[in-house]
Amino acid sequence: MTSLTLGTLEPAPALDHPDLLADPVHATLAAWAHAGEVAVAPIDPEAADTAACNAAYDIPEDAGVNCVVVGGRRDGEERVAACLVRADTRADVNSRVKELLDVRKASFLSMEQAVEQSGMEYGGITPIGLPAGWRLLVDARVVDVPVALIGSGVRRSKVLLPGRLLAELPGAEVVEDLAR
């Protein structure tokens, strides 16, 4: 389990450290068959953003996986998706995500809305423990990341897991060309 390593992070089994996970993240992990393959590592909350974390902990850029929350409306219904893309790419919000959500215009959820609906901290939102009703769109390139670094729901830690497991998260939809 702790064989998952990246840079200078000091990972430990995630379920052994609920204090380093947002409540919905811990609850989802506790019920997930793959939780034994998931680690968590404490970080400086000031280094929670991708570039800062990579620099502070010697993380290769292609190990980071960003979770961006996008929404749009159709027929009065709000449609929301968490999009997982490698940190060295960007989610194709204006074309691919808009098409998948079947909305006229897709945009990033406001910080307030994303935090309130997810129960997670801004800058730590993760695909583990997402609200019911949110889609989880996973760029196909993410599953090839040997050890993926994602948020933990809080800014003071990061989760490490094999990228292939991101496709196994509840409701995950693996999508070609979700990112550019």
Score class of each variant (00 low, 15 high):
Val38Cys: 08
Leu169Arg: 03
Arg155Ala: 07
Thr89Leu: 15
Asp88Ile: 02
Val93Asn: 02
Ala106Phe: 13
Pro60Leu: 00
Asn66Tyr: 06
Thr28Met: 08
Thr50Gln: 05
Ala31Pro: 02
Glu99Ser: 07
Asp92Val: 02
Met1Pro: 00
Thr126Val: 10
Leu136Val: 01
Trp134Ile: 05
Thr28Ile: 04
Asp62His: 01
Asp102Lys: 13
Val138Met: 10
Leu137Ala: 09
Thr5Ser: 14
Ser3Trp: 14
Ala114Pro: 02
Val69Pro: 00
Leu137Asn: 06
Glu77Thr: 14
Arg156Glu: 03
Arg104Phe: 13
His34Arg: 15
Ala12Phe: 01
Leu166Asn: 12
Ala31Asp: 13
Thr89Asp: 15
Arg74Lys: 12
Asp75Met: 11
Val38Glu: 12
Ala167Thr: 06
Ala27Thr: 13
His17Gln: 10
Gly119Val: 04
Glu77Ile: 14
Ala31Ile: 09
Val97Asp: 01
Arg96Ile: 07
Thr50Ser: 13
Ala87Arg: 09
Gly151Asp: 06
Arg155Tyr: 06
Ala179Asn: 05
Arg86Ser: 09
Val65Asn: 10
Leu137Val: 05
Val145Ala: 05
Ser110Trp: 00
Lys105Arg: 14
Cys53Asp: 12
Leu160Val: 11
Leu160Arg: 07
Val97Ser: 01
Val97Glu: 01
Ala179Trp: 12
Gln113Trp: 02
Ala81Tyr: 01
Pro60Gly: 00
Ala81Ser: 05
Ile125Glu: 05
Ala35Leu: 13
Val143Met: 08
Ala114Tyr: 04
Gly153Val: 03
Ser152Thr: 09
Arg135Leu: 13
Leu136Phe: 11
Glu99Val: 04
Glu61Cys: 09
Ser3Arg: 15
Arg164Tyr: 11
Asp92Ser: 03
Val175Asn: 05
Asp62Ser: 03
His26Glu: 09
Leu100Cys: 01
Lys105Met: 10
Gly36Ala: 15
Arg164Thr: 14
Pro170Thr: 02
Ala30Asn: 10
Val138Tyr: 08
His26Trp: 12
Glu121Tyr: 06
Gly153Cys: 05
Pro162Leu: 14
Pro24Asp: 03
Glu173Cys: 04
